[in-house]
């Protein structure tokens, strides 16, 4: 049997991750449930006045998306590290850059994309103006991609540690901050009737930069974690 070509190999990895997730649907639903619950917390904490909720909605939705992404990023490599298949991946002839990209892409599809698609529902509950919905979905799609990629670096560096959960948030939250700034700025601009294009363009640039660099750092981090 010959080794599969690179694209086929990556596609197989993505499919494997998706199949694993579909077999345990709780793993997909948990971040969404978390999102819904935290959305419910904000009116309870800030008061139910629709006007004040609308003014906070952009930032609130983005912060919740960021947190649910953060909570799931710890699990990207955890299972495969525990059962040893990560070590096999490092020994595989395919470049680690692309296999890591496949892992992170699968994570993005499972958490980021599903969150972005369901976010208009919660946006309406928080009284966000309708005009801002396209900007919200677009900014969450791009931004969660950046966050999955950056979160992968943190996950790779902490996967070998027993108590990695808290540490990973310390490591990658500072790196999430620029994404949060431009993501929520895009939604706020759209809500006030301005074009959200510039902010989305900057998010797109961050996404490209993250695709180019983050898998390299993630691959280096995985090698360190496996060696240690």
């Amino acid at each position: 049997m010959s080794a599969p070509s690179l694209p086929a190999f990556c596609l197989r990895l993505v499919r494997r991750q998706l199949v694993l997730a579909v077999r345990r649907p709780v793993e997909i639903l948990n971040p969404l449930l978390f999102f819904a619950m935290v959305v419910a917390l904000f009116p309870l904490g800030l008061g139910p006045d629709p006007k004040s909720l609308a003014s906070f909605a952009a930032g609130t939705l983005w912060i919740i998306a960021l947190l649910s992404n953060l909570l799931t990023s710890d699990t990207i490599f955890r299972g495969d590290y525990d059962d040893g298949s990560l070590e096999q991946l490092l020994l595989a002839p395919q470049p680690l850059y692309f296999s890591v990209l496949a892992y992170l892409g699968a994570h993005w599809l499972l958490t980021g994309v599903s969150l972005a698609l369901i976010s208009p529902l919660f946006a309406l509950m928080l009284n966000l103006p309708l005009e801002a919905l396209p900007a919200l979905v677009a900014s969450l799609l791009l931004g969660s991609g950046v966050m999955s990629l950056v979160g992968g670096v943190g996950a790779a560096l902490t996967v070998g540690l027993k108590r990695g959960g808290m540490l990973i948030s310390l490591l990658i939250l500072p790196l999430y901050m620029p994404v949060l700034i431009f993501g929520s700025a895009a939604v706020r601009a759209a809500a006030q009737g301005f074009p959200a294009g510039p902010q989305l363009a900057i998010l797109g640039a961050m996404f490209c930069l993250a695709i180019a660099l983050a898998p390299l750092a993630t691959a280096a981090g995985l090698r360190i974690s496996i060696d240690a």
């Binding site: 950056v150 670096v153 560096l157 902490t158 070998g160 540690l161 108590r163 990695g164 540490l167 310390l170 490591l171 500072p174 790196l175 620029p178 930069l209 660099l213 983050a214 750092a217 280096a220 981090g221 360190i224 974690s225 060696d227 240690a228």
Partner: peptide
């Protein structure tokens, strides 16, 4: 974050390499 990561590893050689990766990633900031 760099200090916390360094302290979390028991193997100090690996800790140094992990911190090096993290600090290079942080230069994006």
């Amino acid at each position: 974050g760099v200090i916390a990561l360094y302290e979390a590893y028991d193997n100090k050689a690996a800790a140094a390499r992990a911190c090096a990766v993290l600090s290079l990633v942080g230069t994006v900031n």
